[in-house]
Write a protein that binds this DNA or RNA. Structure first.
Lengths: 270, 270
DNA sequence: CGAAAGCGTTTCATATCGTGAAATGCGGTG
DNA sequence: CACCGCATTTCACGATATGAAACGCTTTCG
């Protein structure tokens, strides 16, 4: 009934660093993030454990967020899911900067040029969310990600592109969070993720060679902001035979060019 | 530079009612909502005034939200806008329930049947946001709302449909917030909004007869949740001549039918 | 069928932490 | 130059969040 209980999840804990003060707010935001990354609902116990909060404290925070409509009890009564206000805030943020709209043209170009499937992802907490997709003409379609679907940070090429370019501290945090969920991906381990990230940072693009789905490979590049942090990631997926050496590099070049354009468009709009 | 300063805005204040406790969280959420409803950025002073918070308190809340990436300083340094996490939360909420996707088919039906433009709106704080649009075939297009654009609650037919079916307490709060912004809509006043809402609740649909844009009229209906509260609103806009008596009722019937379907789809998905 | 475990909820004494008045800093304007 | 508006920082006070513990409910297991 509840993903949280099945896949015991990441210590999303309050971020350690920075200055002090306003901790209850930060805890609340950590809870919000935590619930957001549990589409099937997060239960008090899980939030409490993974955010490192006392049950009672957690209960009060959850109650407050429910009262403010940022969360709502999931109808099966088992836990909490995002509420109306979370949606509203999201639309408001989107109105200010509609990333899929900015990216659409470039993604279409990529899908036409490569014939493969193009994905756009952003980071949400310790996961990557696919927020747009363009399907190419090549007859074998690789629809790995639906719009709205998530992957732990680092799992998949787009997700890895987001992961690899985070500051070391956040990477470490993400790794801790991701590790327990790697069971679902036999080809991956904490060590391989670290190695892949290293290579990704070195090459400037991520190459996921059947790491997630057999027979499928993908490359991804980050869309970097002014601060050097990834705002989003573009990736292209295809059957593995189409992602080998010479062609792969061509695809990467196209991706890098589009990522640069998108980066400019996004920082311009801000 | 800053809408907030130009259009002195609504006391969004912490909701009065309910139980006590966790107030700092609630204040933070009120601040978040407030910033969300100010696309051009909200400055400390404005937040402080309109949320009824001490400047220092407000400053700390804003700083905390920035640190958590739910807000970011707007690049002109003048104020605060929604940050990455707000976007992420929104996408997460959307993954759980993609309202535009659920509504698409019905909106297309409406636009085909009426030939006019169909809008889908949701509430965000004390505003309505247009989140989807279908343009009909009739040669005079009425593109009043772009996707992502906002109106104060009650202004426009979709927005009125959302407003009219709120509990009285929230209507009152919204009115206080909206009143100072009515200058932009000469045809509207606090009293006329109250009267229109009354009629809307009575008829079951809102009829905005040139109240916002001259020559244009629209009808709207709420999409009600299990709790009787509006989750969204569907509306149809056209030149006023196409919205008069006999035809208007036909359009309303179509709208009501689609709203019922959408309501079922939405509560089903949850 | 009874015991035990797991979980959500409530309580309450404690001191932590947020609060707001006021002071300081800073940039723009008359 | 003096003033004004605003952001930022400080600080003493006490309101408020905190977490251990107890309660009651449902589910699980013996």
């Amino acid at each position: 009934m509840n993903a949280a209980s099945l896949a015991p999840d990441p210590p999303a804990a309050v971020r350690p660093g920075e200055v002090g003060g306003a901790q209850s707010i930060k805890r609340a935001m950590a809870v919000l993030r935590y619930v957001a990354s549990h589409p099937d609902g997060a239960r008090l116990r899980d939030v409490s454990r993974d955010c490192g909060l006392n049950k009672a404290t957690c209960h009060r925070i959850l109650a407050a967020l429910v009262e403010e409509d940022f969360l709502q009890p999931s109808e099966d009564g088992g836990g909490y899911i995002l509420g109306q206000e979370a949606l509203a805030i999201g639309w408001a943020a989107r109105a200010r900067q509609d990333i899929p709209a900015l990216a659409r043209a470039g993604m279409v170009r990529l899908s036409v040029q490569t014939g493969d499937t193009v994905f756009l992802s952003i980071r949400s907490g310790l996961e990557a969310i696919c927020i747009a997709r363009e399907v190419g003409a090549f007859p074998i379609k690789t629809l790995t990600l639906d719009i709205g679907s998530r992957r732990p940070l680092g799992v998949g090429s787009g997700s890895m592109a987001l992961f690899a370019f985070l500051p070391a501290a956040e990477r470490a945090e993400a790794l801790d969070a991701v590790e327990p969920r790697l069971g679902a991906y036999p080809a991956l381990s904490r060590e391989s993720l670290v190695a892949l990230a290293e290579r990704t940072r070195h090459l400037g693009y991520s190459f996921n060679d059947e790491g997630v789905i057999e027979g499928m490979s993908a490359v991804g590049v980050p869309v970097l902001g002014d601060d050097g942090l990834p705002m989003a990631a573009l990736s292209v997926a295809a059957i593995s035979t189409r992602m080998q050496a010479p062609r792969r590099l061509e695809v990467v070049d196209l991706l890098l060019a589009e990522a640069r354009l998108l980066s400019r468009a996004m920082t311009g709009t801000r």
